[in-house]
Design a protein around this nucleic acid. Sequence first.
DNA 1: TTGACAAGTCAACACTGTTTACATATACCT
DNA 2: AGGTATATGTAAACAGTGTTGACTTGTCAA
Lengths: 201, 201
Amino acid sequence: MDRPDETGGGTGPTRGREATRARILASAKELFTNEGYGSVSSRKIAAHAGVNVALINRYFGAKRGLLTELLREDGVYPGLIVDGPHDQLTRRLAEHAVSRLHGEGTALQRALDDSAGDPDLRSVYQGRITSAMIEPLAAYLGGPEQRAHALLLASVLLGIARVRLVEGAGALCEMERETIIRRVQELLELCLKDFEDGDAA
Amino acid sequence: MDRPDETGGGTGPTRGREATRARILASAKELFTNEGYGSVSSRKIAAHAGVNVALINRYFGAKRGLLTELLREDGVYPGLIVDGPHDQLTRRLAEHAVSRLHGEGTALQRALDDSAGDPDLRSVYQGRITSAMIEPLAAYLGGPEQRAHALLLASVLLGIARVRLVEGAGALCEMERETIIRRVQELLELCLKDFEDGDAA
DNA sequence: TTGACAAGTCAACACTGTTTACATATACCT
DNA sequence: AGGTATATGTAAACAGTGTTGACTTGTCAA
C-alpha cells in the first residue's frame, strides 16, 4: 500500500514517471501561456502531452496542482525584487509594477496574472501572495510595523496589476514612463512612512 | 418570429413574467449572498425559486445575467461616494475603502466582492469598474489628467479590496482605524497630484 | 518462474451552463 | 363563439468540466 518514496534509491528513476510528469508540465505551461488557465481543460493538456487524463491527477493531485508546480518551478513572481539596497526598494518595486502594467514580462507571467482570479486558484494565489510577497517584504523591511507596511505596499502593487485588466487603463501607459514610475514610487514610499506621524496633508 | 416588445402596450404585464423573474432574482440574491456566485448552480437557484432551470436563461440570458441585474438593481457599488464637496473626496473614499477592508457593508456586497475574480464575471466587473468607478471619478475630478488620476485612485482602492482576501491582512484591521484611514487618504491625495511636478521624494 | 508494485488505460461518475423541441395557457381578433 | 398567434413553462438532452476507481500492462527482485 505504501509506496517506497518515489524513485527509491536507484541511480535512474523509474523511467516513465519523471518523463511523463515533465511532459505533462511542459504541455500545461504551453497551453496555459497561450490560452489561460480556465480555458484549458485537463483532457486537452493530456492530449497535448500524449498521456492519459488520469495521470494528471495521479502526478499533480488535481488541475490546480499543475499551476502550483509551474509557479514553484519558474518562480514566476520573483521574490528577488527585495534583493538590493534598501533605499532603492521602492524604485525597484515601482519599476516592476509599471513593467507589469505595460504587459511586459514573459507570456506565462501575463497569462497567470490574468488567471489569478479563478476560484479554483484562489487558495494558490492567496498563499503565494503571502509567502512570496508580503512575508519577504515584511522581513526585508523589519520594524514593529513591518506587516502593515508590507500590506500597504502589496495593496498598491496588486491594485496596479488589477487596473491593468480594465479597459481604458491604457491611459496610464500612454504617459511618459518615467513619470508614472516616479509617482508609483512616491506612493510606495508613503506606504512605508511610520504610522505615528499624525500630520495628514 | 419577432416578439412584440415584452408586455406590449397593455396596462398590466403578463402576470407570470415579472413574478417569476422576481422570484428567480430573489433566490439568486439569497443564495449568492450566503454561498457566493461560483458555488451556486443554475439548477440550485431554479429549485430554490421553484421554477424550471431554462427560465433563468430565458429571462436573464445566462447565469451571469443574474449578477448583472443584482448589481444594477442594488447599486452594490455606490457611485454616490463622489457626491459631496471636492476637498473631502479622498476622505470619503478612504473611509469607504477601510470599511470594506473591515468587511463591512451588506452581506451581498461582501459576497460579490469575493466573487469578483470569477472568470465568468470578468466582463461584468470590468465594465462595472469602468462605468461605476473610473468614469464617474474622472468626470468628478476634471482636468486634462482626469483619467490617469482616476486610474491611480482605482488602483489603490481595488488593491486594498484585494489585500482583504489575503490571509493575515488583518494586521491592517488591528491598527487604530483612524490611523489607517488617514494613511489611505494620504495615498489617494498623492494619486491626485499633478504629474508635472518632477520633484520626487 | 513467480510474485509485487509502479505506470498507464478505460470508462464511468457527478456535476456544470445552456439549448432545443415540445406542451400549455393566455390574450387578442375575426 | 371559435381560432390562432404568442407568451410562458417543461422535460430532456447536449457538450462540456474535473475527478475517481477498477482494470491491464510492464518491469524489476526474490
